[in-house]
């Protein structure tokens, strides 16, 4: 299913910017945990359950490692678990590490989802009109890593019989890949110049149309984002960790904020789900 992908790129950009800001600045598990599961479920609905499960496990491991390491460096906090060489290992430091890891895992997950939604066409479309050069560079740079990987795999398989030592083989492959990609860059630039890139004003073709649903969803994202970020700015949903962990949600705004961020987190997955069901239902009618 790729229903969320069919939304207008600007609409998806608004969504991803909103969740990225929430993940980066909230530092509050009540915002971060729904975001973790929402983005993971969305990733699973696009890429398959198996890949989502394995990356979810890896990210959980990341959270556990950061949570376990933080108490070794931070000794703040009132609840002492035990003393390690005159340094206190506290529950609060563990919680702080967990929230920190959760925020990092959320950011990674969001970018994984961004990669499933945005292809080079969408990136060039977004940046193309205002910053054509930056758009082209971003799109090319994003394409470079998988390209280099594929190139390395093919060179390495060709070298396997020739060179016994693994280190030497890796070095030779690396140098071959670098040479090949540099040559490729020169050819690319020559080709672009001979076709007259940058000589005149460029026209731009795209298939993206703004449908009413894009406007509706875009404004919905903005409203939900404002609702969830307002209590954070006003300090209504304060999650204080040191010296004693406490979560205080005061006022009706904080309730709105928490539910708005949860809706925002699960929106792509739910949209994907409903569109999938609609598709299934329409087939069975035929």
């Amino acid at each position: 299913m790729k229903a969320f992908r069919d939304l207008h790129p600007a609409c998806a950009t608004v969504y991803f910017l909103a969740v990225l800001i929430i993940a980066g600045f909230s530092f509050n598990p009540f915002f971060l945990v729904p975001l973790f599961f929402g983005t993971l479920l969305f990733y699973g609905s696009v890429k398959g359950c198996k890949r989502a499960f394995s990356s979810g496990l890896k990210l959980l491991l990341l959270i556990v490692v950061i949570a376990a390491v933080n108490p070794l460096f931070s000794h703040n906090g009132a609840t002492v678990l035990f003393f390690l060489n005159d340094s206190r290992i506290t529950l609060e430091a563990l919680i702080y590490g967990g929230v920190l890891g959760l925020a990092a895992a959320d950011a990674v997950l969001i970018f994984m989802c961004v990669n499933t939604v945005f292809d080079s066409e969408r990136i060039i479309y977004l940046f193309g009109r205002y910053m054509p050069n930056i758009g082209l560079v971003i799109s090319m740079a994003l394409g470079f890593v998988p390209k280099l990987r594929a190139m390395y795999a093919s060179v390495s398989s060709a070298q396997r019989g020739l060179q016994k030592s693994r280190v030497k083989r890796a070095l030779r492959c690396f140098s071959a890949v670098i040479t090949q990609s540099m040559e490729g860059a020169i050819i690319t630039s020559d080709s672009m110049r001979s076709r007259g890139y940058g000589t005149g004003k460029r026209t731009f073709f795209n298939r993206f149309r703004v449908f009413p649903r894009d406007l509706i969803f875009g404004s919905l994202f903005i409203v939900l984002f404002t609702l969830s970020i307002l209590p954070l700015i006003l300090g209504d949903t304060a999650f204080v960790i040191y010296p004693v962990t406490r979560f205080s949600a005061k006022g009706i705004m904080s309730g709105f904020g928490l539910s708005a961020s949860a809706v925002l987190a699960f929106f792509p997955f739910l949209y994907e789900l409903t569109e999938g069901l609609k598709w299934k239902y329409s087939i069975s009618k035929i």
Binding site: V80, L81, F82, F83, L84, N85, R88
Partner: peptide, 10 residues
């Protein structure tokens, strides 16, 4: 080389 003590022991 690490000594681990509970809070009350410490």
């Amino acid at each position: 080389s690490c000594s681990i003590k509970l809070a009350d022991d410490y």
